[in-house]
Amino acid sequence: MVAGTPDGRCWLIGGRGGQVHVLHWSDHAGLVPQRVGRPSWKMDGGDVETQLDDIRHHWDDGTASLAAVRELASIDLDAAWSEAAADALAELIVTGADPGAREAAVIALAENDEGAATTALYRMFDRHDDHGSAGRLLAHFTGEDAPTTEELIASLPEIGNFLAVLTSAALGERGAAAVPAVHAAFRALPFPARDDADHWWRDESTKYRLMYALKRAGAAAAPATPTLLAVLEDEEIHRDTRHQAEAALQAIGLPETADTIAAEVRRRADLVVHGKDDETEGFSLLLEVLLGMPPAALAASREVGPALKAVRRRFGDGIRTYEEHGESREYTVHEIRLADLIEEKIAERIKK
């Protein structure tokens, strides 16, 4: 049995054993069990399970979530309950509706499992655009209320991953005001990377953290576009660092950014058409960057259409064959698949 309210936000679902489950739609967590009555403001005899239940199910109730987190944080949990609490807190950090409850959950989780808190923070920042959360949390954990942009940047090579994500995100929250200093620090690092250098790993980690700050700054980081593109070309750079450059370019997300990338794709594709084969490697990576850009930027770009036509001139229909177990099989080359997906994304945007 399934029945729902006309607005689709509350559902009754019958179970095999005769139970009736009441679910409601949360904009942050999808369908979740509907709690009845008030949350447990006080714990009787250390009722950890009730507190965890409150944390898991009061996604849209900031007051209830915050009260449950604070109460849970005051309890000395054994190993089994600590693991369950960590899972509940991590989920609240990502899906909670209230910034205060999410920040309280970060503080509670970091005290017991800093690694899990780090992962949850990345997921939270990807999902929510709350301005100020990173700065407030960083102040809580460092005790410094107003560090300068230069001080935050200088700390990045030495701090651990948990403070690093908060520091990078706090820099990103400063937007255009911090971008020149972040970009300058980024450009001062070794390019191209040298994997035999004494500080290669530290340098790669610092690049990653600075690019995360540029990603969080979004469109304000547009002046860093050429440097981010240079990272994509660096064969000795760490793969995660390169991926962060891709993510930062996509977060900038401007039609002008799409123009710059698409123009380079077209240039390289046309070099092959004209018989020059020396600069063709890597433009599939540029196509992947384009594919992850906002549909509005792709649709508004003047260069994406010509770039995709150049790719098709280079690869034709894109159908290639290979032999397997004595049989001829077909496949579509990666660049053509990417071009198809980009065109589909633009078409969907135009329909809307």
Rank of each mutant, 00 (worst) to 15 (best):
D130L: 03
Q244S: 04
S284L: 01
Y122T: 02
A176W: 07
L210I: 10
R314P: 01
R266F: 10
Y212P: 00
H131Q: 08
R329C: 13
A263Y: 00
I75D: 15
A222K: 09
L291F: 02
H238A: 01
G253R: 08
P190E: 13
R267E: 09
V32E: 00
T206S: 05
G218V: 07
D78T: 01
G14T: 06
L163F: 04
L138M: 00
I252F: 02
A217S: 13
K345S: 12
E83L: 06
V231W: 03
I319S: 01
H131Y: 12
R349P: 00
T5I: 13
L291Y: 01
A188W: 08
A184T: 12
M43L: 11
D145Q: 06
T95P: 00
H24D: 11
L228E: 04
K352T: 11
D196V: 13
R242L: 03
T63H: 11
A164D: 02
I319G: 03
D240A: 07
L287S: 06
L229I: 15
R35C: 15
S328L: 07
A79D: 03
G143E: 10
E91P: 00
A297W: 07
S284A: 12
A139H: 01
V304E: 03
R312Y: 06
T95S: 04
P294I: 12
L137I: 00
R302T: 09
L229D: 03
R136A: 13
L52T: 10
R136M: 12
V36G: 10
Q250G: 04
A88S: 14
A101Y: 03
R268V: 13
E330T: 15
L156W: 08
K345M: 11
T149D: 05
S205P: 09
D198Y: 15
A170S: 14
A80P: 01
R35Y: 12
V48E: 09
A213Q: 05
G4W: 15
E344F: 05
I159D: 07
G218I: 06
G4M: 14
D278T: 04
E158M: 11
A139F: 03
K42Q: 06
S65L: 09
